[in-house]
Amino acid sequence: KYSDMIVAAIQAEKNRAGSSRQSIQKYIKSHYKVGENADSQIKLSIKRLVTTGVLKQTKGVGASGSFRLA
């Protein structure tokens, strides 16, 4: 599940300011076997996790910027 992968990526990075979408994508692609549409799936999952309150956006708008666990 992409949401689990995103949470794992943010936990692994341990950046106080949060993790960027690009760094999350890079982590997921190197640690998991994902399909061609992974980028758009990650983007959608990040937006969903922010609206449900699992992630907090520290910089930027939408799916860009930095995110950390709430």
Rank of each mutant, 00 (worst) to 15 (best):
K1A: 10
K1T: 14
K1D: 13
Y2E: 00
Y2K: 01
Y2R: 00
S3F: 14
S3E: 15
S3T: 13
S3G: 09
S3W: 06
D4E: 12
D4A: 10
D4P: 06
D4F: 14
D4T: 08
D4G: 05
D4C: 15
M5K: 03
M5F: 04
M5V: 02
M5H: 02
M5E: 01
M5W: 12
M5T: 00
M5S: 02
I6R: 00
I6E: 00
I6H: 02
V7F: 06
V7S: 02
V7M: 08
V7T: 04
V7E: 02
A8I: 06
A8V: 04
A8E: 10
A8H: 05
A9Q: 01
A9F: 07
A9V: 02
I10D: 01
I10M: 05
I10R: 00
I10P: 02
Q11M: 14
Q11A: 10
Q11K: 13
Q11N: 09
Q11F: 08
Q11Y: 08
Q11G: 06
A12E: 04
A12T: 04
A12H: 08
A12Q: 06
E13S: 11
E13R: 05
E13N: 12
E13K: 07
K14E: 09
K14L: 06
K14Y: 08
K14F: 07
K14S: 12
K14I: 05
K14W: 06
N15S: 10
N15F: 05
N15M: 05
N15Y: 06
R16Y: 10
R16G: 13
R16F: 10
R16A: 13
R16I: 12
R16N: 08
A17H: 14
A17Y: 14
A17F: 14
A17L: 11
A17M: 11
G18I: 02
G18D: 03
G18A: 04
G18H: 05
G18S: 04
S19E: 02
S19R: 06
S19P: 04
S19T: 08
S19A: 11
S19L: 13
S20E: 04
S20H: 03
S20C: 05
S20T: 15
S20N: 06
R21K: 08
Q22T: 10
Q22W: 09
Q22N: 08
Q22K: 09
Q22F: 08
Q22A: 13
S23I: 03
S23F: 13
S23A: 10
S23L: 03
S23D: 11
I24L: 02
I24M: 01
I24E: 00
I24A: 00
I24Q: 00
Q25K: 07
Q25L: 15
Q25W: 09
Q25M: 15
K26V: 08
K26P: 00
K26A: 13
K26Q: 12
K26F: 09
K26L: 12
Y27F: 07
Y27G: 00
Y27A: 00
I28L: 04
I28D: 00
I28F: 03
K29Q: 06
K29V: 07
S30E: 13
S30I: 08
S30R: 07
S30P: 00
S30C: 11
H31T: 05
H31P: 00
H31Q: 03
Y32W: 07
Y32S: 02
Y32I: 03
Y32K: 00
Y32T: 05
Y32L: 02
K33D: 13
K33T: 10
K33H: 09
K33R: 10
V34A: 05
V34E: 03
V34L: 08
V34N: 03
V34R: 01
V34I: 05
G35Y: 04
G35E: 06
G35I: 04
G35S: 07
G35L: 15
G35F: 04
E36W: 08
E36Q: 12
E36S: 12
N37I: 05
N37E: 13
N37R: 08
N37H: 08
N37V: 05
N37P: 03
A38S: 06
A38N: 03
A38F: 11
A38I: 14
A38R: 02
D39A: 09
D39W: 09
D39K: 07
D39S: 07
S40N: 12
S40W: 14
S40P: 05
S40M: 14
S40C: 11
Q41L: 14
Q41H: 09
Q41W: 12
Q41N: 07
Q41F: 09
Q41T: 05
I42M: 01
I42S: 00
I42W: 03
I42T: 01
I42Q: 00
I42V: 04
K43L: 15
K43M: 13
K43S: 13
K43I: 14
K43Q: 13
K43W: 15
L44Y: 08
L44H: 08
L44P: 01
S45D: 06
S45Q: 13
S45F: 09
S45N: 14
S45W: 15
I46W: 03
I46D: 01
K47T: 08
K47Y: 11
K47A: 11
K47F: 10
K47H: 09
R48A: 11
R48S: 08
R48Y: 14
R48N: 12
L49N: 01
L49W: 01
L49H: 00
L49A: 02
L49D: 01
L49T: 00
L49R: 02
L49M: 12
V50K: 01
V50M: 04
V50N: 01
V50D: 03
V50E: 03
T51L: 14
T51N: 12
T51Y: 10
T52V: 09
G53M: 03
G53D: 01
G53K: 05
G53L: 03
V54C: 07
V54T: 04
V54G: 01
V54W: 04
V54L: 06
L55Y: 01
L55K: 02
L55M: 02
L55Q: 00
L55D: 00
L55F: 00
L55S: 01
K56V: 15
K56R: 10
Q57M: 13
Q57I: 12
Q57K: 12
Q57T: 07
T58L: 11
T58G: 07
T58D: 08
T58V: 13
K59Y: 10
K59S: 11
K59I: 08
K59D: 07
K59W: 10
K59C: 14
G60H: 07
V61F: 11
V61Y: 12
V61N: 11
V61R: 15
G62H: 07
G62L: 06
G62T: 07
G62Y: 06
A63T: 12
A63Y: 08
A63G: 14
A63C: 14
A63H: 11
A63P: 07
A63I: 09
A63K: 12
A63D: 11
S64N: 12
S64T: 11
S64Y: 09
S64W: 09
S64M: 11
S64D: 12
S64F: 09
S64C: 14
G65I: 15
G65D: 14
G65V: 15
G65A: 15
S66M: 14
S66G: 12
S66A: 09
S66R: 15
S66F: 13
S66P: 08
S66I: 14
F67K: 02
F67G: 01
F67C: 03
F67I: 05
F67Y: 14
F67H: 04
R68Q: 13
R68Y: 14
R68C: 11
R68E: 09
R68L: 11
R68W: 10
L69N: 04
L69E: 03
L69C: 06
L69D: 03
A70P: 04
A70Y: 09
A70V: 08
A70N: 09
A70L: 07
A70E: 04
